Amino acid sequence: MDRLSPFDFVELCCGGKIKLSRSEEKAVERGRAVLEEAIRSGGEYYAVNTGVGALLDRRIPPVKMLEFQENLVLSHACGVGKPLEECIVKGMMLHMILNLKSGYSGIRPETLELLVEMFNRNIIPVVPEKGSLGASGDLIPQAHIALAMIGRGRIFRMPYATCSTIEEFDRHNLRPVKLQMGEAIALLNGTSLMTSLMAFAVVYAKNLITTAHIAAAMSIAALGGNHEAFDFTPQKWNRRVYRDVSADFIRFLLSSKKQHFKDEAGIKNKRQKPYSLRCSPRVLGSFLEALCRYVWPVVSDEINNFSGNPEIFLESEMVAQGRDNFHGQSLAQAADALAVVLANLSGISERRIDKLLNGSAKGLPSFLMRSSGLNTGLMIVQYTA
Rank of each mutant, 00 (worst) to 15 (best):
K101C: 12
Y104P: 11
S105F: 06
M92S: 04
L98D: 00
K130T: 08
V126T: 08
M92A: 01
E85W: 07
T111P: 13
E86S: 13
E86D: 11
R108F: 12
E86R: 10
G103I: 10
G106P: 05
M93L: 09
V89Y: 01
E129W: 09
F119Q: 00
P128M: 01
L112E: 00
P109S: 09
I124S: 00
L84V: 07
M118P: 14
S132Q: 10
G91L: 03
V116M: 09
P109T: 04
E110K: 11
K101V: 10
S105D: 01
G131I: 03
G131H: 08
T111H: 06
L114E: 01
S132Y: 08
G91Y: 06
K130I: 10
M93P: 13
I124E: 01
P109M: 07
K130N: 13
P109E: 00
E85L: 12
E129Y: 11
S102N: 14
E113F: 15
I107W: 01
L115I: 03
L112A: 05
E129K: 13
S105K: 03
P125I: 01
V116F: 13
K90H: 10
F119I: 01
R121M: 09
I123R: 00
Y104W: 14
M93R: 03
G91S: 10
F119T: 00
L94W: 04
I123P: 04
V127N: 02
V116L: 11
H95K: 15
P125M: 01
E113K: 15
E85P: 11
L100Q: 06
M93Q: 07
G103R: 03
F119K: 00
N99C: 14
P109K: 05
G103E: 02
L84W: 06
H95Y: 06
S105V: 09
V127P: 10
K90R: 14
